[in-house]
Nucleic acid binder design. Structure first.
Lengths: 173, 173
DNA sequence: TTAAACTTTCAGAAAATATTGAAAGTTTAA
DNA sequence: TTAAACTTTCAATATTTTCTGAAAGTTTAA
């Protein structure tokens, strides 16, 4: 599809809608992704009412999802001198965004796995010897995998802060 | 929690249940994750009926989710000589599992983003100059980010197949 | 052929998740 | 104080996603 002579508002709205539906395929609620897209697309902060207006969501929904975005460290509160209400502004640096998302995913996705694996590895299993061996191999392979993923996220952090590293990665991959 | 003298079946069942609930936090359905855990924990293939029995799911559900696991290239069908039914066996090599998951996620999560960004970048936007600039910077930053993620997944593939590379990554991260 | 053994499909039911909006809570200015 | 301006909470509702199971489809052996 080729687009010609689109109003900025139209482009932004397209972006917000599309980001919202992409969100679901990443396990992020549509509203949260839309609000994030909206805030990313504005250089300055927006108030809760402005967000409600632009993405057509209820006050409660905006409140909840903005709080969640703040938990992810993707958005922060801002106060403007002389104004009573709060404004919300997105972290605009894509490298930091990426880093915060990776960290949050690490915390949410990897750490629970590690906990489970440790628990099971501590057990003294009884039963068929070969089946036990297979099962324990699985556990230790998975543990290795988790570590490798963690190494990789650490590496990403390094890349973000280091142009030489970025080139190195590109070269070897 | 410390476990002592657990039966293999008990450990396996613990693993299946826990893997299932972890699944949801990764955007994978509980049943799919449970079936995957079950198949991972058995060195040999299981039939649809055996899966139904072990994870207590309906025939339809097992059929659908096994098919999905096959799409992800995490499971394959097997036939046993002289047996009419099909058996399902998991890919047991953790590096290949990781690689297939990364590839599928790349395809599902990254490619749609790229499509959206290209579409928006092609538009000639009209409106406030500075806001347009901010918006277009956002688009190109996001595109860079997508590329970087792709580089990283390629790197992971390399690591899997190369022990030297693995050590290098560990050293520099 | 046919019938038994097995697999697939899909409409409806159930479960999980997200959203609303009004009421309760908090802060600030006067 | 008080009341206006704003934020937060949460029970009810709506939406989306997943699951079931019976019916339809397919394959195979005889």
């Amino acid at each position: 599809m080729y687009i010609w002579g689109m109003k900025l508002e139209e482009g932004r709205s397209k972006f917000i809608q599309a980001w919202g539906s992409l969100g679901s395929s990443w396990g992020i609620s549509k509203s949260m992704a839309q609000i994030h897209a909206l805030l990313l697309s504005y250089p300055e902060g927006l108030s809760a009412d402005e967000i409600m207006e632009e993405v057509q969501l209820s006050r409660g929904n905006v409140n909840t999802n903005v709080r969640e975005l703040i938990n992810w460290r993707l958005v922060r509160k801002e106060t403007v001198l002389g104004e009573r209400k709060e404004f919300f502004i997105a972290l605009h640096d894509v490298h930091s965004i990426a880093q915060n998302i990776m960290e949050e995913r690490k915390r949410r996705e990897l750490e629970p796995v590690r906990r489970l694996l440790n628990e099971l590895k501590a057990a003294k299993l009884e039963g068929n010897k070969e089946e036990i061996e297979h099962f324990q191999n699985l556990l230790s392979d998975l543990a290795d995998f988790v570590s490798q993923m963690e190494n990789l996220t650490n590496l990403m952090t390094k890349i973000n802060n280091n142009n030489y590293m970025k080139k190195l990665i590109k070269a070897i991959s």
